[in-house]
Amino acid sequence: MKALIQRVMNANVTVNSEPISSIGQGLCVLIGICNGDTVKDMEYIVRKILSIKIFDDESNKRWKKNVVEKQFEVLCVSQFTLYNTWKGTKPDFHHAMPGEKSKEFYMKFLEMLRDQYQPEKIKDGEFGAYMQVSIQNDGPVTFTIESPSKEQDKTSKGDEKET
């Protein structure tokens, strides 16, 4: 499982020009779900999203507070393209978990995130829809986190890449 975490001043999602979701200051998190992801991967990513210290404290000291301590919001957007590989110049998504299975997994992920924080502060897009995601990145600050089992898989097996 992979998360691209962006510290934002605000973010919103629209589908067919209709607003679906929006947040004020907090995190916009793009979520990639890989074939073989487990609840353990989900727990790791949820823990990281809620605990990483990427906000300033009250004295403007950097990297001192997490989203929970600041009581900020989180906007999650499912994004299968985070698990692409390249076949020449074309993306290939065979590492991404297939549709219905990933939808169920993603919904459990959102439920776990809401259970461990304040449910009303966790927002999301529309799974499987063609969305427009607008963010005002704060910093800019952007981090990628991947569950450890996937990092170990890459180092032990290698990742086929074509150019």
Rank of each mutant, 00 (worst) to 15 (best):
Gly99Tyr: 04
Lys64Val: 06
Trp86Asn: 05
Lys90Gly: 01
Met112Gln: 15
Lys121Val: 11
Cys28Ala: 13
Thr14Arg: 12
Ser21Ala: 15
Asn35Tyr: 02
Asn35Cys: 13
Ser22Glu: 15
Val15Met: 08
Phe55Thr: 12
Gln118Thr: 15
Ser59Gly: 03
Ile33Ser: 06
Val29Gln: 06
Gln25Pro: 02
Leu4Tyr: 06
Asp138Arg: 03
Lys90Phe: 00
Phe72Val: 07
Leu30Phe: 14
Asp138Gln: 10
Leu75Glu: 03
Lys48Gly: 02
Met131Arg: 06
Phe55Asp: 07
Asn35Ser: 10
Ile49Asn: 07
Lys103Phe: 08
Phe72Arg: 02
Gln116Asn: 15
Gly125Lys: 04
Tyr130Phe: 13
Met9Ile: 12
Ser22Lys: 14
Ser134Pro: 00
Met42Pro: 04
Ser51Met: 08
Asp57Lys: 04
Ala11Trp: 04
Tyr44Leu: 03
Lys121Thr: 13
Ala3Ser: 11
Leu110Glu: 11
Asn12Gln: 14
Val46Asp: 02
Ser21Trp: 09
Pro19Phe: 00
Lys123Val: 00
Asp57Leu: 10
Val46Asn: 09
Ile33Pro: 06
Gln25Asp: 05
Glu104Gly: 08
Pro19Val: 12
Met9His: 13
Asn10Glu: 15
Leu30Tyr: 12
Val39Thr: 15
Met97Asn: 04
Lys2Thr: 03
Pro98Ala: 11
Asp37Ser: 09
Ile20Leu: 07
Tyr83Gln: 10
Ser22Asn: 14
Ser59Gln: 15
Met9Gly: 07
Asn10Leu: 06
Leu4Ile: 12
Tyr83Ala: 04
Pro119Thr: 10
Leu75Thr: 09
Phe109Thr: 05
Ile54Met: 13
Cys28His: 03
Gln136Ala: 14
Lys108Phe: 04
Ser17Asn: 15
Asp138Glu: 12
Tyr106Gln: 04
Glu43Phe: 07
Asn137Tyr: 03
Met112Val: 02
Met107Val: 00
Gln79Arg: 00
Lys103Pro: 03
Leu82Ile: 11
Ile5Met: 11
Gly88Gln: 06
Arg62Met: 13
Ser102Trp: 03
Asp92Gln: 02
Gly24Glu: 11
Ala129Asp: 05
Leu4Met: 12
Lys123Leu: 05
Ala3Glu: 10
Asp41Cys: 08
Ile54Thr: 08
Met107Gly: 00
Tyr106Thr: 01
Ile54Leu: 12
Ala96Tyr: 01
Cys34Gly: 06
Gln71Asp: 15
Ile52Asn: 06
Gln79Asp: 07
Glu69Lys: 10
Gln25Ile: 04
Ile31His: 04
Phe109Met: 10
Val8His: 06
Cys76Ile: 05
Ala129Gly: 05
Ser17Gly: 00
Leu110His: 08
Ala11Asn: 03
Val29Tyr: 00
Arg47Phe: 14
Ile54Trp: 09
